[in-house]
Design a protein around this nucleic acid. Sequence first.
DNA 1: TTGTACGCGTTATCAT
DNA 2: ATGATAACGCGTACAA
Lengths: 335, 335
Amino acid sequence: MDETTAHATLEDVAAFAGVSTATVSRCINSPDRVAPATREKITNAIRALNYSPNFGAKALASRRTGIIGAVIPTLENAVFAHGIDAFERALPQGKYSLLVASCGYDLNREKQQIESLVARGADGLLLVGFDRDPSLYAWLAHRRVPFVLAWASGDSHHFAGFDNKAGMAAMIRLVLDLGHRKIAMISGLTDGNDRARARLEGVRQSLADRGLGLCGVAEVPYGLDGGGQAFTELMVDRSITAIVCGNDVLAAGALRAAHHMGLVVPRDITITGFDDIDIASITLPELTTVRVPHARMGQEAALMLQRLIEGQESESVLLPTEIVERGTHAPPGGR
Amino acid sequence: MDETTAHATLEDVAAFAGVSTATVSRCINSPDRVAPATREKITNAIRALNYSPNFGAKALASRRTGIIGAVIPTLENAVFAHGIDAFERALPQGKYSLLVASCGYDLNREKQQIESLVARGADGLLLVGFDRDPSLYAWLAHRRVPFVLAWASGDSHHFAGFDNKAGMAAMIRLVLDLGHRKIAMISGLTDGNDRARARLEGVRQSLADRGLGLCGVAEVPYGLDGGGQAFTELMVDRSITAIVCGNDVLAAGALRAAHHMGLVVPRDITITGFDDIDIASITLPELTTVRVPHARMGQEAALMLQRLIEGQESESVLLPTEIVERGTHAPPGGR
DNA sequence: TTGTACGCGTTATCAT
DNA sequence: ATGATAACGCGTACAA
């Protein structure tokens, strides 16, 4: 069949079809600019030679790759997995592809990954949160790489996200309205994580507005176990009647720990989550949490980034969060 | 600062450092082949001009992109999210980047995505399962694109996976040993999904080996609700004492449905899962399931693919699965 | 509508 | 150790 490993080039196709390379190129990139008859010949030639364009050459000549990069903390967190999934699906098939890199919640590593993706020709970037060195933003601007920030909101840059602080504030309102006054929080690690910080801040401030304070805060790494251990430690203070968690995984871990401690939720203790991922409706009782439209967000981010890459302007999108009252909250005071 | 939008090129750096472009190129790609003194000058020039190589040009000239492609059904399935996460992290930072595409369990779409990734210059591919048109394999071979198959095992191609059928067979053995004889299965959609088919086949054959048959099979789409509905339908036959599920999500859905039906697990019914993802230890009772080393698999796949891309041979890796006995299994017969 | 010819930024071969 | 210089495959003015 094929005598050599070499692939057909534009020139081969042109020769085969008896036209110039320019015409072949046109036929591929803007078919309407070439006569139907020649288009026919070229199409046949392409098929006959099993031609497919060389990526490097195309990128070099056109100065575009059609590659969009995304740097996220980790795909192990369902929140990012879902968002990225939706983001990728919202990208026009064939026009753009998604290059993903994870940084494990490490800002330095994030910077490296961003540089790596840009070096690999990313036409645009999807990033998580706002918290990064100004010089990085300057570099991005200098390199003229458009980007969209997600999973948070702010008053600068382009973003498709939501208000972490407000979401938590709403949850605190619910807990307070229930009558709770002795409230503690299990937060994700806040170092280099503005989403976690905003959620913690949302709790602190809402409480302060009512003249209250947190009865305890545990800052733990993402994971079921982190949530469980934090719960056990926090509950040394048995006067606590409600524990709000920075995310659903932490909450699920806390719930499991509560169960192991022989506590009945929500009779003995109220536990709340944040994100409303799948596990929130698998726990028993199901988790009261803050719903975040992760998929919708990924989709909006994809749309925005495309516009930016194609030189159009694009407004930021602030998505609403919503309290989902399920089974892990109740007034304090046991039965 | 910068008067124009143009970026520094190799030539600019060469001029600035007073050497030739060839030397600069060498300095970047094999620093040890250039004298320390000139290396110094070049390094300074690079920094001074804020130079970074043009991806397209590099790819064109070197015939390599450093991009690895992966096509998976969806990142919404934690199994793939974790595997891909591990895969990506096992890739040498800076040397390779990961291009991900999802196909939603659709073989046609998978083919398109594969072609798209190859068109984008992927040096190698990570694919899920073995089940695809022979012509696609032929095309991949012709294009000389190395690939590794995961989440399954077989006797052809390079793979880093596990034996779905054997995993299920082991689970059936456990259920049978417990004394169950009226067994039903909730399977994922088997169309175009050899992993789901292998799991179903594992159940069927193990049962047949003991002269038994399935008391019911429901084939449902991935998701909590699918598992729940299937459970409800299957349990119309109250003689059933055990339901094995094709994956943990289906099992979690079944468990929830059982709870809503007022059934006590495992007293009234045994329910088992497959994969051992996080939710398996969040349900109440925790799920008895088949553990699959998804992260380890992703890691092995990354190592294999790198070797293949770099022209070395590489043995396939068959990872072991393991039964995890937790709380959803018990002998039949209620209390 | 189609063809000519040059430029894109690197890599790599071959001298020196 | 370093320098010329020829590919690499495609896009795109510009001309015809």
